[in-house]
Nucleic acid binder design. Structure first.
Lengths: 242, 242
DNA sequence: ATTTTTGATTTGTGATCACACTTGCTTTGA
DNA sequence: TCAAAGCAAGTGTGATCACAAATCAAAAAT
């Protein structure tokens, strides 16, 4: 009976090989569309067609239509009565609505995280912030896409520590919904010369380090409110229902 | 130029006819599965197959697979690594997690509703409650399905008044996720002889009538906490990870 | 010149098929 | 007797086709 020997051999093999994973085409399409949506690559009110996306992503229509269906159910996209789908338009009510929901839920998540984060996790987000500052110091021209990605990583690194498998998907859905709006605001920001998000982020990690849930919540709300408030003003003055 | 006359005629016709709607098969499948899930017709951990459901619903596999995909993204169902899908199992952490999220979000929704409901809307939910009492008085044997449906109508009639297009879909998703758990609790309840949900509901409408947002929130949290607490105890004593 | 009608193209939906993977059972070998 | 190999039924995924509805542009009618 060489059973033990075989077992041993398998373990050796397993140690050297990394699992290959079996992501479906549909999953890749879904991820790609999510990325585009959060990154603001699609404009509000833009209409998307199944065949158009399938051509762009070089697949058949099947994975695309299923991905679109999923995005519609989480309100990241909108199904028109004509059965065509578009990214939801920006309205004043929607902006306020999204901000309220995000403040409520992300605030709760960070409050939970504040009580649960261990020193290692706090050090991790601090390191992330330092790396971010460094990058910002090096690059003269600001790379908006990179900024957005880092911002996303920063927030979700914290949210993950709240330990709620229910809240986190909701937050992802909210980011998906506010992605197109936010991106419009960020670009406007950038033109207006404002950039200092770093200050808010430092307040957040300071509060987390002190395990001060209430302060963390307030700092976070201040952070996410800023682009929404900016967008709100812009929309009110422009009275341009995109 | 009889343009005005034709217009008029069309209006007359439109006034008599009720829009027929163009629900797709996929939508019907989705609604049906939602209903089943919220109603607790599926057991936690139960595995669902596309072809099985397609046979049961008398359609092809196509609408079913898309409906399943949508339910998976809103965490009403769970995709196993084997690519099979099941209704999520009940665990202690999940129960606490769901209760926390529901208290937070439905609490916010009812607090908003308390400040926004007009007398007509309040009268409407009061009427609903009265009708409910009446039904309960008539029927000796309690009809759990009917109870659940009325409870759902009652809650969402109120939530709709919060005026948030973002919060309401989230609440629907939460009901979808807690449906299977709740149903287990309700049945256990029923066996244990407890039934008095009416008391909680009366507290809720009383608070709403007084426009007391905080009281409404507290009454609501008490209402939704009860089955969760019951289920929690049951699960802890049975140590039976369904 | 403006409106209506007609026709061609595009689009979403549902059905069906082919393929790969999983699963459970039987058979084979030690 | 028992574990491993092999086989067969079942299952999810993606591609393709058919069809109906929507959209748009040109042509016809007023």
């Amino acid at each position: 009976m060489q059973k033990a020997a075989i077992e041993k051999n398998n373990e050796v093999i397993a140690a050297q090989l990394t699992p290959v994973g079996r992501e479906t085409v549909q999953d890749r399409v879904y991820s790609e569309l999510r990325r585009a949506l959060i990154g603001g690559l699609f404009e509000p009110s833009q209409v998307l067609t199944i065949r158009g996306l399938a051509d762009a992503l070089v697949t058949s229509t099947m994975p695309v239509r299923e991905a679109l269906g999923r995005l519609i159910t989480e309100k990241a996209l909108e199904a028109l009565p004509n059965r065509s789908v578009r990214v939801p338009p920006i309205t004043l009510e929607r902006i306020d609505d999204l901000l309220r929901a995000r403040s409520l839920i992300e605030g709760e998540a960070i409050a939970l995280a504040a009580t649960r984060m261990n020193p290692r996790q706090i050090a991790s987000v601090e390191a992330m912030l330092a790396e971010w500052d460094e990058m910002r110091a090096l690059k003269h021209k600001k790379d908006i896409d990179r900024e957005a990605t880092l911002n996303q990583s920063f927030h979700f690194e914290i949210y993950r520590c709240c330990g709620s498998a229910v809240l986190i998907p909701m937050i992802e859905s909210l980011w998906l919904q506010s992605g197109p709006c936010i991106r419009v605001a960020i670009y406007a920001f950038s033109d207006a010369g404002e950039v200092d998000t770093a200050h808010y982020h430092r307040s957040i990690v300071a509060a987390l380090a002190k395990q001060d849930a209430q302060a963390a919540r307030e700092a976070l709300v201040a952070d996410i409110s800023r682009p929404f408030a900016f967008l709100r003003d812009k929309l009110q003055s422009a009275k341009d229902p995109i």
